[in-house]
């Protein structure tokens, strides 16, 4: 009887804890994290777009505007991942998430790509204010870091 009542106790405890998932984040918190990540990616994309249109010659080169865009982009790239990439907020588990489970199962690899992005974004601040040629060159390096991370760590659209 004793083991039985113990297991019942465990079950009760587990059901009480259900809204709070294994890592201590509620499903609401996980969803909010995914939403915030997507918003940050939109911000990054916007500023990439400002720089990209100058690189492609669709917009005139403007050192001040380019620097501002690069600074905002750098801020987005430097957002702390500890709070944005909550464990359990992967694609399939949380609505709107396209984060692959590999972000957590291969956290060292993910961190390496994220730091490469941060570094390239920081270099863009200097390049963007230098001249159009420098901006173009750094655009390639920076763009490469997007793909390098999205390839292993982002799933297709939901």
């Amino acid at each position: 009887m004793r083991p039985f009542s113990l297991s019942v106790l465990t079950l009760v405890a587990a059901s009480l804890a259900a809204p709070v998932l294994s890592d201590g984040h509620s499903s609401k918190a996980l969803e909010a994290a995914a939403k915030a990540r997507n918003a940050n990616m939109s911000m990054i994309g916007y500023h990439m777009g400002v720089l990209g249109s100058m690189a492609k010659g669709e917009a005139p080169y403007d050192a001040a505007l380019a620097t501002a865009a690069a600074e905002n982009l750098q801020a987005g790239a430097a957002m702390s991942r500890i709070v944005l990439y909550l464990e359990g907020s992967e694609q399939g588990a949380v609505a709107g998430s396209r984060a692959k489970a590999e972000i957590w199962s291969d956290s060292a690899g993910f961190e390496k790509q994220a730091i490469a992005f941060e570094t390239a974004a920081a270099a863009m601040v200097t390049a963007a204010g230098t001249d159009l040629e420098a901006l173009r060159g750094q655009m390639q390096a920076l763009g490469g870091t997007c793909g390098d991370c999205h390839k292993p760590y982002r799933g297709p659209r939901n």
Binding site: M48, G147, K151
Partner: peptide, 20 residues
């Protein structure tokens, strides 16, 4: 060529390999 969409999202997953 670059993997960038018109709104500067970038190709990911298997499609990133296709772009490469």
């Amino acid at each position: 060529t670059s993997g960038f969409t018109p709104d500067y999202d970038s190709a990911g997953g298997k499609m990133a390999e296709v772009v490469e």
